[in-house]
Design a binder for these strands. Structure first.
Length: 622
DNA sequence: ACGCATGGCGCC
DNA sequence: AAAGGGCGCCATGCGT
């Protein structure tokens, strides 16, 4: 089938294109943009866009090329008459562009993001358009590479740009069939399609960051690091020179090199190997240093606590100072939230990863992330979301009872597992005797808590033993007891294992799948053990991820009903959602509404519960 | 110069 | 033989 590609040069061309496309209800859409910040939809400069309504004909509409300059983006909405479905390859970017520059935010249409559909079907393969065109259509889609699209001629670009829209449409035709076959229509259209609108909104907001405070913190960290290094030198005459910090002699050790640290600890200082890495080599991490104590709890060498301090400071310095403030544009950081970054269905984050900001009380990194002028920051998180979903999925009676009576789950499980006979009413946090029981059975509660969390990850007695500070046999007895008292949990885990063995995948309550590959050994093919841990975890972790999507979609509906910029959704970290809310009379009302949506949108056998915190910066919202 | 693996570590 | 799920980023060290 021959493809046609048209460059829209004149108003007449545009009018004709409208005639040729107006009867279609679906349109694939791709944008071309320039500037040094081309990857940030808010700061990118539109250069042109392409559309296709059938996967055969492509149109390229130039806006700002060397040879053609137009205002055609302002006529974009004319192409959307009659349209029901917008088809993207990476909606966050292209919809972000239209929202920021085309005066058209596409919210009222249904979205189908082929990249996300591809991910739902096959999380293992690359998600690039060109890669998938080659893979599925055996066609090498040529790429137009130029350092800045602003410096190009439309005549040189339009054929490549048309192909992006044409092939996006072709992928849609393929993907929608596969999605249907796998019963994921609701997931891709109503959950992902709507959630991508929220992600687009968040990408455009960014988050305010105080560069000056960050640089001050950086100086403080550098000073502290130098002090630590000097102390290390004082207590370790074996070291004569530390890379980068003290001049003079031949390099003796680089504290950032684990190879060097291993040599120092185990060869020069002859400390015992108490921990190994995954590959069996002696470990030189903070946990290994922490173990360097004798029977009287005295350090085997004074360098050990200093190295722990060093690693903490060095980590903050290398990952959370310069690398944050150098990403600031106009006072804000615009990180990426990826909807296709994980196998479990969670979101991943990058450049920077705002999901891993340290909660350090000494060096307050989170305090650098501010609410905008005139706004408060509001962070609301779910309490024990995963355990609640685990209870819903397994129908475990202890979980259902505990959460629905607002009891302390860990204490209930402890009471049942160890026959403590704690009266039911005393399991409730507000009961006068609750605290005395909690103190009295501290150990049993701790065991129960360790297992409650461990079970989500498929932890075994071997892994549990060190945490409970007991033998493997004792840990095994505790686990057995737990499963005996809570047979529904054991059953649910066995069910998910069986699901893997029969179907090769598991799915969560919204139909999101996780697939598993067999390993091969001695000609036998089998699912490695970790598959079964991952399978059960997928239902919990991936289920919570989709719950979050659904809930954020509802919150965004509410946000859009308010005056513009009254509430901004800033970001999310798995079980928490961050907002900026205008600091006015309505703030409290919005807060309450957000929490109401978070707890009431999804009806499980177990109620959801949130904990919201207001502040002027992220650090204060704890 | 760049890509990749490893060890390590920040978060949920 | 190892022994908990999901991420991204850092520095090093080795390969091309």
């Amino acid at each position: 089938m021959e493809l046609t590609r048209k460059l829209i040069r004149t108003e007449n061309d545009f009018n004709q294109m409208i005639e040729e496309t107006k009867d279609s209800i679906k349109i694939a859409f791709d944008t071309e943009n320039g500037s040094e910040l081309a990857l940030n939809p808010k700061y990118a400069k539109p250069v042109g866009f392409s559309i296709s309504v059938d996967g055969k004909r492509g149109y390229y509409i130039p806006i700002n090329h060397l040879d053609i300059k137009t205002n055609f983006h302002l006529r974009f909405k004319e192409l959307l008459v009659n349209k029901k479905l917008i088809i993207f390859w990476n909606a966050i970017y292209d919809a972000g562009i239209t929202s920021a520059h085309y005066n058209e935010d596409l919210y009222k249409y249904k979205w189908f993001d082929c990249m996300i559909a591809q991910h739902l079907i096959d999380a293992f393969q690359s998600k690039g358009l060109k890669y998938n065109t080659k893979r599925y259509f055996r066609i090498h889609q040529q790429e137009f590479k130029w350092k800045d699209m602003l410096d190009t001629n439309a005549a040189d670009v339009y054929q490549y740009a048309c192909d992006d829209a044409i092939y996006t449409f072709k992928h849609y035709l393929r993907l929608k069939e596969e999605i249907k076959k796998q019963h994921m229509e609701n997931l891709i259209l109503n959950i992902e399609g709507e959630f991508l609108k929220v992600l687009t909104h968040m990408k455009l907001q960014g988050i305010k960051f105080n560069v000056d405070e960050c640089k001050q913190l950086e100086q403080r960290l550098i000073k502290d690091k130098i002090n630590i290094v000097n102390e290390i030198l004082n207590v370790t005459p074996e070291i004569t020179y530390i890379q980068d910090l003290l001049g003079g002699k031949k390099p003796n050790i680089n504290l950032d090199s684990n190879k060097d640290l291993v040599k120092l600890l185990y060869d020069k200082l002859n400390l015992p190997v108490k921990k190994q890495t995954a590959s069996g080599a002696p470990a030189a991490d903070s946990e290994a240093f922490e173990l360097m104590k004798d029977n009287f709890n005295e350090w085997l060498h004074p360098i050990c606590p200093l190295l722990i301090k060093y690693k903490e400071v060095q980590k903050l310095l290398s990952a959370y100072t310069k690398s944050l403030y150098e990403k600031v544009v106009d006072g804000r950081i615009y990180g990426d939230l990826l909807d296709h970054g994980t196998e479990s269905g969670r979101l991943s984050a990058r450049e920077p990863n705002l999901q891993q900001l340290p909660k350090n009380d000494t060096y307050k990194i989170r305090h650098l992330f501010k609410a905008s002028e005139g706004y408060k920051m509001y962070v609301s998180d779910f309490s024990q979301e995963e355990l609640r979903l685990a209870g819903h999925i397994t129908k475990c009676k202890a979980f259902l009872k505990a959460f629905n009576n607002e009891e302390d789950l860990h204490l209930r499980v402890a009471s049942e597992s160890y026959n403590l006979n704690i009266p039911e009413e005393c399991l409730i946090g507000t009961h006068p005797q609750y605290n005395s029981y909690k103190d009295k059975y501290y150990k049993e509660r701790f065991y129960a808590k360790s297992i409650n969390f461990g079970l989500l990850y498929g932890r075994t007695a071997h892994g549990l033993a060190p945490q409970l500070n007991c033998s493997v046999e004792e840990a095994q007895a505790i686990v057995n007891n737990y499963f005996y008292s809570n047979p529904e949990i054991k059953q649910a885990m066995e069910n998910s294992k069986r699901e893997v063995q029969v179907k090769g995948y598991v799915e969560n309550i919204y139909g999101r799948k996780r697939r598993f590959n067999k390993a091969e050994k001695n000609g036998r093919r089998f699912y490695p053990k970790e598959c079964f841990r991952q399978a059960f975890n997928h239902k919990i972790q991936g289920g919570c991820a989709d719950m979050l999507r659904i809930i954020m979609v509802e919150i965004y509906k509410y946000v859009r009903e308010q005056p513009k910029d009254e509430i901004r959704i800033i970001t999310t970290v798995h079980d928490e959602i961050m907002f900026e809310i205008k600091d006015n009379i309505n703030l409290q009302k919005h807060r309450e509404m957000i929490d109401k949506i978070m707890t009431e949108t999804i009806k499980l056998d177990i109620k959801l519960s949130t904990d919201g915190k207001l502040g002027n910066n992220y650090g204060e919202c704890k």
